[in-house]
Amino acid sequence: MNKNLLSLGILLFLFSCSSSKQISKNTPQILRDFNTFLITEISTDKTYGLSPKNPVEVGGAKYSEGPINERRFLNALAGPNGEEISYFRAGSCCAVKSNNDPFGFGSVMLDDYRVTWENSKDTISIYINMYDSGKLKAPIGFTLKK
């Protein structure tokens, strides 16, 4: 009886810690021009890009285009009323799982970009993963450049 309970407990632990979510994505990105991605949607997910648990996945690190892909994403965004945004890289943070880790450890660091626009009351962090590539959308609160 105790062995069965122990076995059941171990199985529950293993399955509760696993995720059915795909770790790494490799969605191809489309360029509007050399410096800007073509993005056509605004996310409805309140955490997309605004939480390290749900970063924007721009890809490109494998081909040494990670940082430029981060800027290509940000260059496609506008403020809530179409304002020109400005941004700077505040640093790296937050390890996330990735099969595309160039060092083989299974996790990568995100980049934290601080974004603002004229007359904004605050600076907003957008978390970007340059190792994995997913469908790009503008985070809630942003619009897309025309």
Rank of each mutant, 00 (worst) to 15 (best):
Q29P: 12
Q29V: 08
Q29Y: 10
Q29L: 08
Q29A: 11
Q29S: 04
Q29C: 08
I30T: 10
I30M: 01
I30F: 07
L31S: 12
L31W: 09
L31C: 00
L31K: 10
L31D: 14
L31A: 07
R32Y: 15
R32A: 13
R32M: 13
R32Q: 14
D33C: 04
D33P: 02
D33R: 04
N35F: 12
N35I: 04
T36F: 01
T36D: 06
F37E: 14
F37Q: 06
F37N: 01
F37T: 00
L38A: 12
I39A: 02
I39K: 02
I39G: 05
I39C: 04
T40I: 11
E41M: 14
I42M: 02
S43L: 13
S43C: 13
S43R: 12
S43I: 11
T44M: 08
T44L: 12
T44E: 15
K46A: 14
K46H: 08
K46G: 09
K46S: 14
T47K: 10
T47A: 05
Y48N: 07
Y48H: 08
G49V: 00
L50S: 00
P52C: 12
P52Y: 12
K53T: 15
N54V: 03
P55L: 00
P55D: 14
V56D: 02
E57F: 10
V58L: 09
V58S: 05
G59I: 06
G59L: 06
A61N: 03
K62D: 14
Y63F: 14
Y63C: 01
Y63A: 10
S64Q: 09
S64V: 05
E65H: 11
E65K: 10
E65T: 08
E65P: 00
G66V: 05
P67K: 06
P67T: 01
I68P: 01
I68K: 09
I68M: 09
N69D: 02
N69K: 03
N69T: 03
R71Y: 10
R71M: 10
R71T: 06
R72F: 06
R72L: 07
F73H: 02
F73M: 11
F73R: 02
L74W: 07
L74P: 03
L74N: 00
N75T: 12
N75L: 08
N75I: 11
A76T: 02
A76I: 03
A76R: 00
A76V: 02
L77Q: 01
L77T: 05
L77S: 04
L77C: 07
L77Y: 00
A78L: 05
A78M: 09
A78V: 10
G79F: 07
G79N: 11
G79M: 08
G79C: 10
P80S: 10
P80R: 13
P80L: 11
P80A: 11
